[in-house]
Write a protein that binds this DNA or RNA. Structure first.
Ligand code: SF4
Ligand code: SF4
Lengths: 143, 143
DNA sequence: TTTAAATTGGACAAATGTGTCCGATTTAAA
DNA sequence: TTTAAATCGGACACATTTGTCCAATTTAAA
């Protein structure tokens, strides 16, 4: 479903949502520790997220990462997926047909369309904020 | 979601369901043409499906491939997925946590669990026969 | 028995995804 | 001004997936 990089990216964003009150920054090292991902690989992922403007990175001493913009309520899973994996999960559907439509459907269309719509709805309507709450309460976990 | 190999495998099975009345065989070349996949790669995939006993292969002149067993109604998408991709799609869920459960869930569990169950239900309850009907009627397509 | 049609399986090649290393650069603080 | 703490970015390494090539084998038919 998602690439490993994208899984790490989502976890990183959820972690950052819990540390990003009032411009407080955390280092790459801390992020990687909390989401249990290789540090150098996490670095690449955070760079992608920074280029997509969903995280803000600050270089130099006392630098680090924080969520960009005012609030994690405005950042949705879909933003992260697009930044890291692109739109293939939406565009290349179940059987990976090059061209499909309601008048030229693949054989699974009738049975799969609802699942695809549910996935897209989940990705576009679930905010990082939604997910960070239970982590901060200790009711869900990133590793 | 699925590997390319698995997509080809599903298409091949759906195509074979339309050609496999009464032990009639089709060649690798024909299968690859109809599902628009590279012939040599398709060969590897059909070999996997043959080892999983969902297709029967016959070597030599007048040989070829046909569905194994009596009917495509007994072969489900899940059988094909397991034969080619294994059970990762079921075992490694959305965020790829190593260990998760209702008492140790990842942050998306509440929102994603239903989608996962819907996908598994779709894979386990959809038979190749279900899918081949609309193709034979010209109402859906494999390319 | 010979030939042609077909799958099989091993080795290889290319592309992508995952992960590492390290020097360059930036910034805050001593 | 110097130093230490950080991210950045390019090059590389490794694993997996995707795809190709070809000789070996099997089988039906001439
Ligand atoms: S399920 Fe529908 S949308 Fe998805 S590939 Fe098939 S025809 Fe296209
Ligand atoms: S959604 Fe639920 S089942 Fe899937 S990884 Fe998260 S906790 Fe596990």
């Amino acid at each position: 479903m998602l690439s490993k990089a994208c899984e790490y990216g989502i976890k990183a964003m959820i972690y950052l949502a819990g540390t990003s009150q009032e411009g407080q920054r955390v280092s790459l090292n801390l992020v990687a520790q909390h989401i249990e991902s290789p540090e150098a690989f996490t670095s690449k992922i955070l760079q992608k997220l920074a280029k997509a403007k969903v995280v803000k990175s600050v270089k130099g001493a006392k630098g680090g990462f924080e969520l960009n913009g005012s609030t994690s309520k405005e950042i949705f899973l879909w933003d992260i997926v697009v930044a890291i994996d692109g739109t293939a999960i939406r565009d290349d559907c179940f059987l990976g047909l090059n061209y499909c439509s309601r008048s030229n459907p693949c054989p699974v269309h009738d049975k799969y369309e609802k699942i695809r719509d549910d996935i897209m709805s989940f990705l576009m309507k679930t905010s990082v904020h939604d997910l960070s709450l239970t982590v901060q309460e200790g009711k869900s976990f990133l590793s």
